[in-house]
Design a protein around this nucleic acid. Structure first.
Lengths: 288, 288
DNA sequence: ACGATTCTGAAATGTTTTTTTCAAAAGACT
DNA sequence: AGTCTTTTGAAAAAAACATTTCAGAATCGT
């Protein structure tokens, strides 16, 4: 009896149900399982029976009462709707699923799915547009931890366009950088957890100069969001003392790909030139 | 406001939500919309906020109260269930599945799954062990693109241990760094695609000095693998002219988490000291 | 660093929902 | 038909739920 769905229980006991109960049962199966999610009064009403009948049937089906049956319905629904990725068997097959690798993988998968649900494609496209606009200077700033992410974005954008300014994480020097910002410029800031006060000030100052601020932050949202024209909230949950930036990096990469797609011809040309330069510097070995 | 879904309302007003409300909003979107169907107490509990917060947010979102919001959720659910085409195969709901966001997400998920299948947990644990060993110096080197990843690893390991050397990506200076390597030391190198010749030379020289080389590379494998005691092959496929480092970053983070777990007591102490130092520096900066 | 403001949850209050009770209605059996 | 059993819903009682109030906590702004 334990693991049967409500529908299965109804079917298996249909013979034992009374007239009013069968009427109710049919109504519940009609739009299953949503029809059973209202209050007992609502359920009773849509089936044209009385609330006690509903309560009695719930008990007859083996539940403690109506709320218990409703909870079972919710659990069923959750299983039915839930994300396919949330359910996977162990990733790294030879490692137990309590191994940090698998636990971390779970977290990152979930973070990715969550983040994507939060993201507004319009925001994404708008930022893509901003970054594609060669007439705007793009300033990139990161904090203590997010510096690497800022760096990653900068390195890749460099291959796509010029007019980029990388602002070093040492905030003492920022005021000078702000002086060089023009109205219409773009400032990309990373601000995650332990939000940094200097970063907020930077965003404020930039905004005062009519610079469009784009923010990468976590699911809770840095206070900078108030000043940002566009914000990306990336989920950073991880089984660790620190947060996971993997999803933030994914988003950065997706943005880079989008910008690259947008002006593919120019990009291709630029890349060719760059490759040539790098080859001349003999930094790379031929692919074998 | 009338015809917006609850999720849309949450997104559009996310900025105006307070900390506890955001926590609740995230929890509700987590298993949307089922997670919002319990009693106000249940919803509050699963989000770790108080019932009043739930009631307040419902009003903030434009509903008369919690029951009204819940009813809206039920209506949405019904519409969603009865329309089998509107299933959840798309990630970012309002973006078509040809949107770069969704395509990139597909690629990254696939990369992660593939990578995990190929990782040998013994390798992982062995590297964890190496990084936990305070008696070995750990040298970290990255290339043109992978520099950010090396930087990320360095920044985080710094919070876990000392005896770390970050080798700048400018390869001219590397020979001096190699001079300082001792037998038993560890060298972590990142080498992905367009494998860099200097990186290979670095690994060779390190190996000659009995340094244990750990390599992060792509699915094809840098030639450095021949000299490395341990190699991680991360899949880097992406719908882009560049590769995706998201999975490599995931692996770095998982390693950091593993090292941190191993000696948690020492780590905790170290972190406390570091926080203190950072606070002091912040204060110092304020007065200058 | 210090008030002013906003936010938050415990507790109290008011409301709705659920269950129980019970009498009437329907049906079953003699 | 008459009596007994079962079923049913109205109404009351009990329980759970939702909202409001309020004081402490956190945050903000100067």
């Amino acid at each position: 009896m334990q693991d049967l769905t409500v529908a299965e229980r109804i079917h298996s006991q249909f013979e034992d149900l009374t007239r009013a109960e069968r009427q109710l049962a049919n109504a519940m199966l009609e739009n299953y399982p949503v029809s059973g999610l209202g209050s007992i009064t609502a359920v009773a009403e849509t089936s044209s029976v009385s609330p006690p009948t509903v309560a009695r049937m719930a008990k007859k089906l083996g539940f403690g009462g109506f709320p218990e049956m409703q909870k079972a319905l919710r659990v069923e629904l959750e299983a039915q709707i839930s994300n396919p990725i949330a359910k996977h068997d162990r990733w790294s097959e030879s490692a137990p699923d309590t191994h940090i690798l698998n636990r971390f993988a779970d977290a990152v998968m979930e973070n990715l799915a969550q983040t994507l649900r939060h993201i507004n494609p319009d925001t994404f496209d708008a930022v893509k547009q901003l970054l594609s606009d060669q007439d705007r200077l793009v300033h990139i700033a990161g904090g203590r931890i997010t510096r690497s992410l800022a760096d990653y974005l900068f390195t890749h954008l460099q291959m796509l366009r010029d007019g980029l300014v990388y602002m070093p994480p040492n905030s003492n020097a920022w005021s000078h950088y702000v002086l060089n910002m023009q109205p219409g410029d773009v400032l990309i800031v990373f601000d995650i957890r332990r939000y940094e006060h200097d970063m907020l000030r930077l965003a404020e100052m930039a905004r005062e100069r009519d610079v469009t601020v784009v923010l990468f932050t976590d699911q809770w949202g840095s206070p900078i969001a108030r000043h940002a024209a566009h914000s990306f909230h990336c989920r950073i949950e991880a089984p660790s003392a620190w947060d996971s930036s993997a999803v933030t990096l994914f988003l950065i990469e997706a943005l880079i790909a989008a910008v690259q797609d947008k002006n593919w011809d120019e990009t291709k040309e630029r890349m060719a030139k760059l490759e040539e330069l790098f080859d001349q510097m003999k930094m790379f070995r031929k692919f074998t």
